[in-house]
Design a protein around this nucleic acid. Structure first.
Lengths: 346, 346
DNA sequence: GTGAAAGCGCTAACAC
DNA sequence: GTGTTAGCGCTTTCAC
């Protein structure tokens, strides 16, 4: 591979000039610029990114930490992130933590601040301590889907009003006349679905329904989890006419469970989810859900991260204790499809 | 961030020694080793990956080119790749080409051989010329899911016997007594589903059925595509009792179309796919499909790529025209679920 | 066993 | 406008 030096020799200039041409910095005469560009083309020169990273003190990649890229929601998000990064000439490294804080830490230790300029964190079950440590080491961190806009985590984040999402889902069911509503809450462990459930509870209370009356089940945030939970819930409470779930995957699972129990969705049972992943549109019946602005969140996250990287670079670790920035997306909104319908006596 | 040099000073040795300790190379006295390790721990030293990459002449990442990481099959594959890479201390960069050769080329130009030591290519609609160019530049390339083990592409690849997959799917339908079978072939454009269809045709011929009799439709390799194709096929040929599709996504779409036409799967219509993505298990009815060894393919691909990287590094571009290696996975196998059943007069 | 020195390919001050 | 000079943080021969 040709180096910048060889380009310089061939064009009869010094490396510095080639570098300037390459990055449109410094003043370069039009004639020289042409000669340099010709040399670059002739040699097929391409900048060596690690060398540039070393010299600049910043690498052209960012890391996206997810528990598993195979979870259907993450790829949609990752795609949006990659797009935003590509526009800025950055590259995306995918880090699967497998929900294990140790694996996450190992990744952070290895690449944060060296190979990766910054870190994007989707629900990956990371230690907040590790993340703060990462920040201190000079690699900005952004939490990608914080659920409580009003209750920031002490780390920069993109916040989505998931409480509202839960509320909208619940209100939709209430408006359809449902009163006996079961709730399936994904991943209590990670603690990220609490706000959604709160929104649900608020709406129920608002309708004069004491929520303790509604059966709740906590379950892993997967189709399988939703399936099992729905089965259990529906067997224990045959009078339920609707199921609220904190995520689309469990909702999809719940619909399968209903089918297996011989229940027709939405005639016998209404099901509503949250997020609006691609699958929600494609399931039969298509899932009614509260759509979350995924792409917007991804773009905000990248924007915020890049911003932090710039400022971190400039202020040379002056005031560490500054307020962590939080960036709120536009609100989630209800998408009515075929999985919900008016309540019906059975 | 502390540097290797600082570690050396603190431990009272030279950088070379620290480097040796770090990589277990060269002889280092046990006492010194201890002092160095202490210094590393005390300072919280972590190697600067770009610097190492520059010095070693090789970066610790590989690039995975896919048309879109949001396509449900790729994340499963990407997960397996990431796992295999992580075990080897390499990192994964995701490159979405959006099915556009230009975008692919831009990626290759930027990172192949600089940021990325090698390139893994999933069906990403890349120019083979660009790939060969990439190889010449010193960055090995591996095609991840070549469909014809017997007909290598002139690039190193992991081959899966997709012709057999098609054959198995067809034979399954034939054994169930189906004779009027429609075929939905995904993405003729990319040319990657031809072998699957060939296998289907072979099996049909083997059963004494002239295949021209079976209606075929080419369509994008998506749920939506399968949906539209199935709708068209079933309307034009109401006598069809089964649908063969070259991929799971279109198969899933076909099942939706059947449902929307009031057909019961599998009573009125059997549907079979190829691949066995996660969704296949989770759909209702669960999809009968021919499972492809995804994880194995991912592991083979990484192994092959790493191998090529080593040999490329050692033989200093001596014999360029060597035979491209092809690595064949274990054969696909039929997974019978609920979407296929015995033929029934209607 | 450990140290000294050169260099990987590039950027960034500053001098001319 | 363009060249000169130092590094960036690490690995790697080769002396000692």
């Amino acid at each position: 591979m040709p180096t910048l030096n060889e380009v310089a020799t061939r064009a009869g200039v010094t490396p510095a000039t080639v570098s300037n041409v390459l990055r449109n910095k410094g003043r370069v005469g039009e004639a020289t610029r042409q000669r340099v560009l010709e040399a670059i083309a002739a040699l097929g020169y391409r900048p060596h990114l690690p060398a540039r990273a070393l010299a600049e003190g910043r690498a052209p990649t960012i890391a996206l930490m997810v528990s598993s890229i195979a979870n259907p929601f993450y790829p949609e998000f990752a795609l949006a992130v990659e797009n935003a990064l590509r526009r800025r000439g950055q590259f995306l490294i995918i880090c699967n933590t497998e929900g294990d804080p140790q694996t996450g830490r190992a990744y952070l230790d290895q690449i944060a601040g060296t190979l990766s300029e910054g870190v994007l964190v989707m629900n990956a079950n990371l230690d907040f301590e590790d993340l703060r440590m990462t920040e201190l080491r000079g690699a900005p961190v952004v939490l990608c889907m914080w659920e409580r806009p009003l209750d920031p985590p002490g780390l920069p984040c993109v916040a989505v009003d998931f409480r509202l999402a839960g509320e909208l889902a619940a209100k939709h069911l209430l408006e359809l006349g449902h009163r006996r509503i079961g709730a399936i809450v994904g991943s209590k462990v990670y603690g990220i679905h609490a706000a959604r459930y709160e929104g649900f509870v608020d709406a129920m209370r608002g309708a004069g329904l004491e929520c303790a009356a509604a059966p709740v089940l906590y379950t892993p945030d997967t189709t399988r989890g939703g399936y099992a939970a729905a089965l259990e819930l529906l067997k224990a409470h045959p009078d339920l006419t609707a199921l609220f779930t904190t995520n689309d995957l469990p909702a999809l699972g719940a619909m399968q469970a209903a089918a297996d129990l011989g229940l027709d969705v939405p005639r016998d049972l209404s099901v509503v989810g949250i997020t609006d992943i691609q699958l929600a549109r494609e399931s039969r019946p298509a899932l009614t859900t509260v759509a979350v602005p995924t792409t917007e969140a991804a773009e905000f996250a990248v924007e915020l991260l890049v911003d932090l990287i710039e400022t971190t670079a400039s202020r040379a670790a002056s005031d560490g204790a500054r307020q962590a920035r939080v960036c709120v997306t536009s609100p989630p909104h209800l998408v009515v499809r075929a999985s919900t319908g008016p309540v019906r006596k059975r």
